[in-house]
Design a protein around this nucleic acid. Structure first.
Lengths: 337, 337
DNA sequence: TTGAAAGCGCTAACAT
DNA sequence: ATGTTAGCGCTTTCAA
């Protein structure tokens, strides 16, 4: 019943060779004749041999293992984990996951990874304080994703949130919008970046920035509240802190009889699962998960292998995903004169 | 820079004792004086010692490690992973995660876990065929979650989908509904179970089962289509295959001017993130992730530890989450006569 | 209560 | 091309 007790020695005995030779064959290392290789592989297959990664890594000193801390509740983390597997595989590293759950905090997740002797850590999102991160970074190569860290001692890879709002505003201006509001996301670092990007882009176009500040956060409810505030004197377009908030706003705006995008164009941020749903179909600023994860793996590999690193922070370029909630300003298309 | 090279021997040297004793202390095993314990702990802390789990497990033969295969794209898997960490911890097991992504299939995820020498596997959802699962189950203790498996050779823990629809229908009947439709979810095993539960419950109440069959699946779009079909002659309530579909249905129903729950009560299934959103606030049948995961861990532990197992399939009891999309039948509350 | 020694499954030197 | 030996960091007899 419980096999998996097959070891190198078993394979060696069956193939009639030494364990060292089996090791060579299993690792595709040079130093074995084709005939032997064949025989060893056959024996291994017959015995259903699985190399024991732990023993292998214990002996060889290096683990080539990257620990990834992520949160099970965050949809975008799924995209990042996907990218990390790809990037790590390409770079010759394995990935081991450690989840943050409501009952398992970041500290626990990190400790578990440390006990597995990862060579480097990639941490998504974060409860940890800057000080904790700096401590950790002093112990092991570390890259923090998706958030800014106020420390010159920690490597960070993050999205260019500021640039993302430039994209959003440019898109709306191109469609003829001039009265564009921004629904703010509260006091997270990301919200500040996005607010700034909005302001910069508006000035660049010589437009008045009518920032609607909704303090407190990033949820559907807050988007809905913002929408109500907007209804008195609606702009022709809004950029919203994130997709969740934008979804709440859409809900209220449509409920109040506004046509989207006829009366109001809406741009979100994140390109999360919600935004892609057919019936929401939100135009939004997408983070480039593939680029972010590739940078993260490259960076942590540089640290592990002792290569010099020129900058602590890598900023990824976002992409505008044009969908159904943005359109030309009313009257613009219907004025062929 | 790169520490983490601290070993038991280092701690032993610093504390002035043998490595065996340090091992005892680190494992909280009996056989060391309080004074020694104190001294060893101090030394370990000073050196920032992290036990090497690999070496530990290699030596002790057992790994007490449970491998979990899950999908990064499925929100409910997040809940299950959360529960698995809790249950495994309580049972004295560690959890190691292996994700299925668009570029990493179940086979790869399982192979990686096997190489880590997990003692048991818990696999969520599944692309694998029944035959593959049966093969795997012959090699290592295995429990499959969230789906039925047509094989007497595989342990399964799943939700009582049929019973869930009994709950939903009972709730609606209690609110005075008699004309209740069911939006079907296509040809998955789960859809069949839910359809059956609906039919059974309706007969039990002596009601006519007006099943609206929408073939093809489980998405918002399909819910929306079903809603349109319903609009000609709407029932007073519907049970819907899942929350995603129910969300699409809500969208269309409200867009058509129906008041929910005034004109139409809606019950979903899954209690996924969407359902809990304030502005959707869907009454739904929740799967008991805690119970499912506890059963799964208990079952796999039984197998690992060689305890007899009486049944291959464990069925968890779902729970009705009453929220804002169900209410009394119109006229019933306003007829105090 | 404490220490010495063996060995988990594997890889890396070094021999042959 | 192949085998022998040693030892990764830890736990586990067994002896003191």
């Amino acid at each position: 019943m419980t096999s998996s007790r097959v070891t190198l020695a078993d394979v060696a005995a069956r193939a009639g060779v030494s364990t060292a030779l089996v090791s060579v064959v299993m690792r595709d290392a040079p130093g074995a004749s084709a005939a032997t290789r064949e025989r060893v592989r056959e024996a291994a297959a017959e015995l259903n041999y699985q190399p024991d990664r732990r023993a292998r890594l214990l002996r060889s000193g290096r683990s080539r293992l990257l620990g990834v801390v992520f949160s099970v509740t965050d949809a975008f983390h799924g995209d990042l984990v996907t990218g990390l597997y790809n990037a790590a595989g390409a770079a010759g590293y394995e990935v081991t996951l450690s989840a943050v759950t409501p009952q398992r905090d970041e500290r626990a997740a990190v400790a578990s990874l440390l006990a597995e002797r990862c060579e480097g850590l990639i941490v998504l999102s974060l409860e940890s304080s800057t000080a904790e991160l700096a401590d950790l970074a002093a112990r092991i190569p570390l890259v923090v994703l998706t958030r800014a860290v106020r420390s010159r001692a920690v490597d960070v890879v993050r999205n260019d949130d500021c640039g993302g709002l430039h994209l959003a505003v440019d898109h709306l201006v191109e469609l003829g919008h001039r009265r564009i509001a921004h629904i703010d996301g509260g006091r997270s670092p990301a919200a500040a970046q996005r607010r700034r990007g909005y302001g910069e882009a508006m000035s660049r176009h010589g437009l008045d920035a009518q920032i609607r500040v909704i303090t407190g956060g990033a949820t559907e409810v807050e988007g809905a509240i913002a929408a109500r505030a907007l209804l008195d004197d609606p702009p022709t377009a809004v950029t919203v802190f994130n997709d969740r908030s934008a979804t709440g706003l859409l809900e209220v705006a449509r409920g109040a009889g506004l046509d989207v995008p006829g009366d109001l164009s809406v741009v979100g941020f994140d390109d999360d699962r919600l935004a892609r749903l057919g019936y929401i179909n939100l135009t939004t600023v997408g983070q480039d998960a593939a680029a972010i994860t590739a940078s993260a793996v490259a960076r942590v590999a540089d640290r592990i292998e002792g290569r010099p690193v020129d900058q602590r922070e890598v900023v990824a370029t976002p992409r505008l995903m044009v969908r159904g909630t943005t359109g030309p300003v009313k009257g613009l298309t219907s004025s062929p004169a």
